[in-house]
Simulated scan of single mutants.
Amino acid sequence: MQNNPGTYAPFGILSARYKSSSATVTLPDGRPLDVSIFYHATNDLNLAHFDSVLQDGLQYYSRNFGPYPFPRLTLMETPVYGPFSVAMQGEIGLIENIGGWNADLRGNSKADYPYYNAAVVLAGQWWGQQLAPNNAKSSPVITKGLAVYSALQLLRQYHGKDAVTPFLEDLQRTYGWGHRTDFDGEHDLLHANKPHLWEAKAPLLLYNLAEHIGADSVNAALRDFLQQWKFRSDSPYAGVADLYKCLQKHTPGYAKDYLKNAWETSTPLSELKPPVSSLNLTKKQALCRDRGP
């Protein structure tokens, strides 16, 4: 146990008549890590999906955001009456029904939502369990938005761009509904105050930014952010403005206006103009020159 846990809870307990499976994963830094899955005996249909996402996520998140620091990792099934997800240091939980423990994924058109759901919860081991944000209204952009973005990139890395499409569409629907029913007026992301901004607009904007400047650049910004603010034992804690500064640092000049409009204004997603890289601009200018006036 920690002597001064502050905002970082030292451990959690879930109790049930679980069955379990376990494996040892070698992390990118060479350390072996014990990984376990605890589940209800009859809910074992998608254990391979969960085993895959834990191994993939530990590799991808560690390489891109920073080493996994805890001595073990355990995924636990939680009951249908909740909570939907649980995240403690080295421990994550996912609900029985919509978590996808027994989802029938036969057929090429089925989105692998057990993999995606677990990827989001696993990302919380970086965004929440290593970095605890301040108590501002916008802080879930860090704990929720970054976890969803991370899961999208993980899914794309191991299953391809098409596998991400249904989850992007779902996030767009979530944002669209929230935007249309936000009768108080939508806030900018630096002052985000509602779930459709934290959990949908923020990850969509990060994913779109990665499409324009490269996922490596966005991930490098998030890595810098994490390294600056992780495991704080006293204030100040990280806020969305600190995240934004790291993104500004890693965003090239041609995309600065896009980043500013995306984060500093309440411009709806559909109205944001994508950046034009200097390379693409040069090609367009050359094409116009070749065609003549």
Rank of each mutant, 00 (worst) to 15 (best):
W101Q: 04
F84E: 06
E91I: 15
Y81N: 10
A119P: 09
P69W: 07
A87R: 02
Y115W: 05
P79D: 14
S62K: 11
S85N: 04
V121A: 07
G100Q: 07
I98K: 15
K110W: 04
A48D: 14
D112Y: 05
G107D: 06
P69G: 11
V120E: 13
D104T: 10
T78A: 06
W127N: 05
M76S: 09
E77D: 08
G107N: 11
G128I: 05
A118V: 04
Q89H: 10
L105Y: 06
Q55P: 00
G107Q: 06
N97S: 10
E91C: 00
G90E: 09
S85A: 13
T78V: 09
K110I: 14
F84R: 15
W126Q: 08
E77S: 00
N117D: 08
V120Y: 09
D56S: 09
Y61N: 07
G66S: 00
Q129R: 15
F70E: 08
A111P: 13
Y116K: 07
W127P: 03
S52H: 04
G107L: 07
F70P: 01
R106G: 08
L73S: 10
V86A: 13
P71K: 10
L58P: 07
L54M: 15
V86L: 12
F70H: 06
L105M: 05
G107E: 09
G90M: 06
Y61S: 11
M88K: 14
N97T: 14
Y115N: 04
T74G: 00
L75F: 08
L47S: 12
V121L: 09
G57N: 03
Y61R: 08
W127Y: 14
M76P: 00
Q129P: 03
P69C: 11
E96V: 03
R63A: 13
G66K: 02
A103S: 13
F70G: 01
Y116W: 01
Y68W: 09
V120T: 12
G82M: 11
S62D: 08
Y61L: 05
F84G: 09
G90K: 10
L54D: 01
G82H: 10
Y81D: 14
W126H: 14
R72M: 00
F65S: 09
R63H: 06
L54G: 05
V86N: 08
Y116H: 07
A87Y: 03
G57P: 02
A87M: 13
V80H: 08
Q59D: 15
G82W: 01
S62H: 11
A103K: 06
Y116I: 06
L54Y: 00
G90R: 05
P71C: 10
L54N: 06
P83Q: 01
M88R: 05
N102G: 04
Q89P: 11
P67D: 14
S62M: 06
S85L: 02
Y61K: 13
W127T: 05
D56M: 04
H49D: 15
N108S: 15
P114F: 04
F84Q: 00
W101M: 10
A103G: 14
F65W: 12
A87W: 00
F84M: 07
E96F: 15
G66I: 03
G100F: 04
A48V: 02
V86S: 04
A48F: 00
F50P: 12
G128N: 07
V121H: 00
